[in-house]
């Protein structure tokens, strides 16, 4: 019984040659071959990595340097402005002193002219006695 079953299975599972042109038909039935996708890696090559870490430090350094530069520029501009104001004040004060001197000299000479035009009256006898 078991031998009969085995024989039948052996017959069923015997090697059979494929029909003529089967492989060609299967290949023809397959869909067209898709082009492979191009994948670019975003990971930089290992050699570039040290440069990126340097740039990371350069940005804050540049910001700090420009901040310090801006402060120094502001201090310099304020100092220059103070100097200009001080120089202008000194010039103005010197000019006003010169003007007052000029007006004093003018008044002295006008006084001289006045005395020349209007000489003091001669002293009276009574004033001479006192």
């Amino acid at each position: 019984m078991t031998e009969d079953l085995e024989n039948r299975m052996r017959r069923a599972m015997r090697k059979v040659d494929a029909p003529e042109g089967l492989a060609d038909r299967i290949l023809a039935a397959l869909p067209p071959r898709a082009a492979p996708a191009i994948v670019t890696t975003l990971v930089p090559p290992p050699a570039a990595r040290p440069a990126r870490s340097g740039w990371r430090h350069a940005m804050p350094a540049a910001l700090a340097a420009s901040f310090v530069g801006a402060i120094l520029l502001g201090v310099f501009a304020a100092d220059q402005r103070d100097r200009i104001v001080a120089a202008r004040d000194a010039e103005g004060e010197a000019a006003s002193r010169a003007l007052m001197d000029a007006l004093r000299v003018t008044s002295q000479k006008l006084d001289l002219a006045y005395q020349a035009v209007n000489p003091p009256p001669p002293a009276t006898d009574e004033e001479n006695r006192t």
Partner: peptide, 25 residues
């Protein structure tokens, strides 16, 4: 020696710097 030569520009500056609280100025 007194040598005073304020031209129009310097005279304008001098005028602005005169103290109005001082009667003479």
């Amino acid at each position: 020696t007194v040598n005073v030569t304020p031209g129009s520009k310097l005279l304008g500056i001098a005028c602005r710097f005169l103290d109005t609280n001082d009667p003479e100025e």
